[in-house]
Nucleic acid binder design. Sequence first.
DNA 1: TGCTAATATTTAGTATGACAAATATAAAAT
DNA 2: ATTTTATATTTGTCATACTAAATATTAGCA
Lengths: 144, 144
Amino acid sequence: MTNIKFDSYSYLLDRTARRVKGYAQQKFASGDFDVTVDQWLILKSLDNDKYLKQKELAEITGKDNPTLTRIVDLLCKKGLTERITHKDDRRSFTVHLTAAGTAKLEELSPRVNEVRMKAWENLTEEDYEQLKTILNKIYQNLES
Amino acid sequence: MTNIKFDSYSYLLDRTARRVKGYAQQKFASGDFDVTVDQWLILKSLDNDKYLKQKELAEITGKDNPTLTRIVDLLCKKGLTERITHKDDRRSFTVHLTAAGTAKLEELSPRVNEVRMKAWENLTEEDYEQLKTILNKIYQNLES
DNA sequence: TGCTAATATTTAGTATGACAAATATAAAAT
DNA sequence: ATTTTATATTTGTCATACTAAATATTAGCA
């Protein structure tokens, strides 16, 4: 018999993820962070790996290419990142942080962590580990 | 010290939820379900409670009012639901399934469950329970 | 070399999601 | 009874997703 509860689990997952993102977005907005949650994710990725092709950035952040293009567009318009033609492959752009982008990252890092923490209150270390494991299993179940 | 890992957990949650929804959406599309995942959620809610005000539907499905209005617009355009002026409150509409909507629900139910199951393969009963508990804790941490 | 297939990015179209403001109606208050 | 306040829905705007198609460039192969 097909089990009906999986549909509800999917809904629960979706709802929770939306609330976590929405809560952060509200705090980002009210705190005048001047970036969205998704834009922040790109900045952080570029802090870890200084020069990334958009393709790689998309891979790392789990965004598709069109979405990534638009987020990078917005970040460039804000002067936080810039596109540089890839030296070996003229199809590609390398994206990296500008000085302003680096400054923004420094400025926001502690404040973002502050905001992010709220969702995870009252969870034990074990909860984190279990959640991580389960989410990764689900992710892999749907791989390609 | 502010703990940096909460930002990654948030990302992991977001990424997983997007993949679960995206996977289902792909199957919905390739199987010619003719509804989106979110539209399906509305249909299912209307199957549980036959006559709901849009406000109530929004509450139940966790959508905001403008989003709900638009999803119902699409469902009505497809002839799967209809809006009826509320008898006591002319500000409100009551939404309910048409015959076509009921038929669609019958037809898709088993196929949706089939699709939804995939994400949860290899998870134990205990995993489900833990996930549910943890997600609900997170949800409540961010309540209003 | 020249042709074909693959890859990186962008553009276009539709749907969702959040927020603010507009509209219509109802309920509360004076 | 009239004014104020609250509620239900809609509309507008921007950002994010996903798909498909367009463009540019590179790589592989006959």
